[in-house]
Amino acid sequence: MSFLIPCPNCGERSVYEFRFGAEVKSRPSAGSPSEDWLRYTYVKQNESGVQKEWWYHRMGCRQWFIAVRNTATNEVLSTSLPEEKPGGTSS
């Protein structure tokens, strides 16, 4: 595994500088039914193909960002810093 990730801050770097976070999904609101929480906590898409993911540049800018990656080829199609949405988190 030696693919490159274009960090929105630092540019293209080796994947070893990064930490994989999780698939991007939205968190149920407080008081949602148990099933929603179970699905959110335990069920992963594990897409074989393009998926949106959280990555953290631990050896670089130390910021979280979102990457669109093809998990089958490890091609990173795009990366971006999370949008600043007052009051809501995009995870």
Partner: peptide
């Protein structure tokens, strides 16, 4: 812990 805190504030504005 730092990463955990920063993850939960990422994008929250």
């Amino acid at each position: 812990v730092q990463q955990w805190l920063e993850w939960w504030m990422a994008g929250a504005g």
